[in-house]
Design a protein around this nucleic acid. Structure first.
Lengths: 197, 197
DNA sequence: GCGTCACTTGACGCAGTGTAAAGTTTACAC
DNA sequence: GTGTAAACTTTACACTGCGTCAAGTGACGC
């Protein structure tokens, strides 16, 4: 018999590879099984549903890619630096989770489990936005017209995966320009004009 | 026998009403048929596929809601006014097409016809963005660091239906705040700082 | 040898889209 | 009134992809 956790990992890696390929969004359970070299039923043995597989994959990627380490740097920064550091961290992580995120977003309208899982992630990301806006507020850099909540709503929207998709995937921006311009955009909206160029 | 074009309109209106209801995104062909008071096959008699029905609905809404009139005002404006006028026009139109747009976006990953139709619309909207950025450029209000294309890419992204969805549907902003803040955001990113407050 | 765990095989139920074919109703023509 | 044609109904079915079920196989521990 095979090692169960090894098979599980094989399935997760196969699924990730497929999702990262061109037609990744259309990846079916049978494709995953074939790519992993197991039967379709073996996939269901490890993951009850397609949504559960994708959700498990996000966690798998998180641990493999050290998401916590990436975000640690942004938590150390203060004032305007915190905004930049957060955009570096989150913006740099988007391309990593994008393939599976895209699949989860695609099934979200019709699948509560997928929708909730993705919403949870986006809610967690919102905490980072709020912390960055709070950091601006605490050094008096936040525009007077903005509240913590309004600023957070907008930053959370600007840094959405959909916007990354639009700029990088659709418009063909490269990742570094995305980061640079998102920083400029966020600062232009959130910060008093006398606090930046 | 019934009037074919009357039945067609009945189907389109029923479909629109369903899409505008709470669980609109999940609207099936059989739901549309039932709501229109015709058989499921009658729907297929008028629209070969679900995608075709949704695409026809966007056109139907365009004509009923006078989309051309809405955009005419923005084409008349110049300089900074053109940006505001375009955001008023397009931003005001998003809530109108959102229900059917959401359905089209949901099926886009797996349906070429739906994807292409939605992309076409977004490409048309991009023309408006480009015209607005060009208007800024022509009065010397565009930031030196920005090109026409970069500015257009970003404005097109900022004014996406997804961002309206995030702010209005998810964050609960009201429509007028969405418009106001989008204008502020766009100006903050696109315009030289000495051209606005 | 015996059980058990991981997995395979093949079949099936289900939902929703789309197709096919035969029948019904209405209108209009002559 | 008979004929015909268009709009629509009814019933049935094919297809895809998800998820389930049940019986079978192979390896390993004891």
């Amino acid at each position: 018999m095979a090692d169960a956790s090894a098979t599980r990992t094989k399935i997760l890696n196969a699924c990730r590879t497929l999702l990262e390929s061109d037609a990744g969004a259309a990846t079916r359970m049978s494709d995953v099984a074939k790519a992993a070299g197991v039967s379709r039923q073996a996939v269901y043995l490890h993951f009850k549903t397609r949504a559960e597989l994708l959700i498990a994959l996000t966690r798998h990627i998180d641990s493999v890619e050290d998401v916590d380490d990436r975000l640690a740097a942004s938590r150390a920064a203060t004032g305007l630096d915190r905004l930049d550091a957060f955009i570096d961290a989150w913006g740099g992580y988007i391309p990593v989770i994008y393939p599976v995120g895209r699949a989860l977003m695609a099934m979200a309208p019709g699948d509560d489990a997928a929708r909730l899982a993705w919403e949870d992630r986006m809610t967690a990301m919102r905490q980072g936005c709020e912390a960055a806006v709070r950091a601006l507020e605490s050094v008096g850099a936040l525009k007077d017209a903005l509240t913590l909540e309004t600023g957070t709503d907008m930053l959370w929207t600007l840094l959405s995966v959909r916007n990354w998709e639009a700029l990088v995937e659709t418009c063909g921006w490269d990742q570094s320009r995305y980061i640079t311009d998102m920083k400029a955009l966020s600062r232009a909206y959130l910060c008093k004009t006398d606090n930046h160029g």
